[in-house]
Amino acid sequence: MSTEQPQSGDPTGMAGPVTDDARLFPPLQGRAVPVAQDRWERLVSAVDIPQPPEAVWAALTDPGRVAHWFGVCRGNWARADCEVMLDFEDGEFFWCRIQQNSAPTADHPGRLRYLWRWVGIGPVTSVTWTVAASEGGTSVTVVEEAVNPPSDWRSWNGMGWPGILDQLAAHLRTGTTWRWPWRRMGPYLQVPLPAPPFQAWEALTAPGAVRHWLQPCAGSLAVDDEMTVVMGDASGCALLKVTRLVDSGQEFPSYLPYLEFELRRPRWPAPLAGRIWIEPVGLHESLLQVFQSGWEGVGIPAAVVERRILTGYWTSAAARAQMLLRPPGAQAPPIGPHGWSLSGGDDG
Rank of each mutant, 00 (worst) to 15 (best):
S126A: 13
V119P: 00
W182Q: 12
S126G: 08
G137V: 03
S343D: 12
L189H: 11
N76M: 09
W268F: 06
A200D: 03
L60C: 13
A132W: 04
P333A: 08
P194K: 09
E306V: 10
S2M: 04
S2H: 10
W129D: 05
M85D: 14
S341A: 10
Q167F: 02
P123K: 08
A36K: 08
A303G: 06
E4I: 10
D21A: 13
D81K: 14
A206D: 12
P192Y: 09
R31N: 11
C96T: 12
F25Y: 10
R308E: 13
P109I: 03
M85Y: 09
I335P: 00
D62E: 13
G282P: 02
W57A: 01
V229L: 11
P337Y: 04
P150A: 14
L112I: 02
Q331P: 00
Q99N: 12
E145I: 04
G13L: 01
P17D: 07
Q331G: 02
M85G: 13
R179T: 14
I98F: 06
R97A: 10
P11M: 01
P50S: 15
L263V: 13
R179H: 07
R97W: 05
P181M: 13
A36E: 08
F261W: 07
R183E: 15
P149K: 04
G236I: 00
T243W: 09
G186I: 05
G297Y: 12
V246F: 01
E135G: 12
I276A: 14
M159V: 07
F25A: 11
P253E: 06
W201L: 02
Y188H: 14
E279L: 02
V47T: 07
P257N: 07
P149M: 09
E285V: 01
Q51V: 01
V305M: 10
D225P: 03
Q51A: 15
L325R: 04
I98H: 06
I164E: 11
L287G: 04
V281N: 06
R154A: 13
P187N: 04
W268M: 04
W182G: 14
E54Y: 06
V84K: 03
P50T: 07
P181S: 15
R97L: 08
P271E: 01
F70A: 10
P149H: 05
Y313H: 05
I121A: 02
V119D: 13
L324W: 02
A318I: 11
P181G: 15
G312F: 05
A222M: 09
N101H: 15
S343Q: 11
T3H: 13
E145A: 08
V304F: 06
W153E: 13
I49D: 11
S151E: 14
P34N: 03
C82A: 14
L112F: 07
T3M: 12
V84H: 02
T243N: 12
R307E: 10
H108M: 12
G297M: 09
H171R: 09
L214D: 00
L189F: 14
R154Q: 11
G186R: 00
P257F: 02
P187F: 08
G312M: 00
Y258H: 12
T243E: 14
V230H: 11
A234C: 05
A302H: 10
V298L: 06
W178K: 03
P196A: 15
G137N: 03
I300W: 01
V140M: 05
P333H: 03
V290E: 00
E202I: 06
A59D: 15
